[in-house]
Computed example of a mutant assay.
Amino acid sequence: MLLAEQALNGLQYGMMLFLMAAGLTLVFGVMGLINLAHGSLYMTGAFACAAVAAATGSFWLGLVASLAAAAAAGALVEIAVIRRLYARDHLDQVLATFALILVFSEGTRWLFGSFPLYLKLPAALSGAVVLPGGLHYPLFRLVIIGFGAAVAVGLWWLITRTRLGIRIRAGEADREMIGALGVDIARLYTIVFALGAALAGLAGALVGTIQSVQVGMGEPVLILAFVVVVIGGIGSIKGALVGALLVGMTDTLGKALLPGLLSRVWDASSANTIGASLASVLIYVLMAVVLILRPQGLFGARG
């Protein structure tokens, strides 16, 4: 029962990472842009959801607001700042997007203060359900898993079955050629960046129901999102999904099982501390192994 519960927790955590990493891998793959401010868009979605839900009493309106606010912020950032960085060196992109982190953090602190906000789940999503085998599991965590699966299917359909998806894939392969064929590259990049921002905002809103919404909440998850992108392969939605699930399972099962195994050697307190640390290290060991065996990532295109 413990193993089944932790596997579901790992699946839920992986789906959250996928929502974050999917937008990041789109932007990275299509635009070749290293966007450190992606975590700030995640935070923007969480604060928008918390503020609108508190003002209206509706979590669903807050969820819509998280998508709209993050997408609008992403489009504005792309037009005002990012557009000037495409032809610049990656170091310039890192410095500029790091500056955006500071702008977003201080702007959010000015608007909402330094105290954390809390999102309350609607009654329909509260409580637990009984799964086969008698396992009681929180309903909302299952909803998050369903959200992640639905987004994965939606992105697959968008990328492989729509005209916009054809342009996104073509822009990833040869942006000069599609520009010569009459595609508005600037508009395409704004749409892709806004889509990636909206996915990050959705992830932030969903995570805000599990933990507090606070300034700086996007930076820790941004590191894991980059790990997911590297493992899955830059520009690959399928890779982002598989990489996110691998990272989620590795982290969750490691933190659940390693302390128990280490308690046979050390005392309980030391086993818990060392086990949690080793579980975090395992994520980067996984990334290192993937890079050794497949430098382009699991589903990345060869250079």
Rank of each mutant, 00 (worst) to 15 (best):
V247T: 03
M16L: 15
L155Q: 11
A46M: 10
F59M: 04
A194G: 13
S66W: 11
G32W: 12
S105E: 15
P132V: 03
L119H: 01
P116Q: 11
F140K: 00
K238Y: 01
S126F: 04
Q12L: 12
W157P: 01
G62S: 05
G275F: 03
L158D: 06
A4K: 05
H38Q: 15
A68C: 09
L2V: 12
R161M: 08
A51D: 12
V129N: 02
M16P: 07
G248N: 01
G260Y: 13
I178L: 15
A65Q: 08
F193L: 08
L195K: 08
I145S: 05
G233K: 09
G179M: 06
S277M: 14
A271F: 10
G300I: 00
R167N: 09
V129I: 05
L26F: 07
A46V: 03
G29K: 05
F104Q: 08
A87R: 15
V94D: 04
A276Q: 13
P132E: 13
R302Q: 10
Q6W: 15
G62Q: 00
G243F: 06
L246D: 00
W110Q: 13
P295C: 06
P116R: 03
L278W: 12
L131T: 06
L246E: 00
A46T: 02
T97V: 07
S277I: 14
L76D: 05
V247D: 01
G146Y: 02
A225P: 14
P295R: 00
G10Y: 10
I101V: 15
V230A: 14
G32M: 04
G243S: 03
A200L: 05
F18S: 05
Y189N: 11
L36D: 06
A99Y: 08
L278Q: 08
H38P: 13
I34T: 05
A150W: 05
M287L: 15
A21Y: 03
R264T: 08
G216N: 02
Y86W: 10
K255Q: 15
V265Y: 13
A54R: 13
G204P: 13
I166G: 04
V192T: 12
F226Q: 04
I178C: 14
T97D: 10
G300V: 02
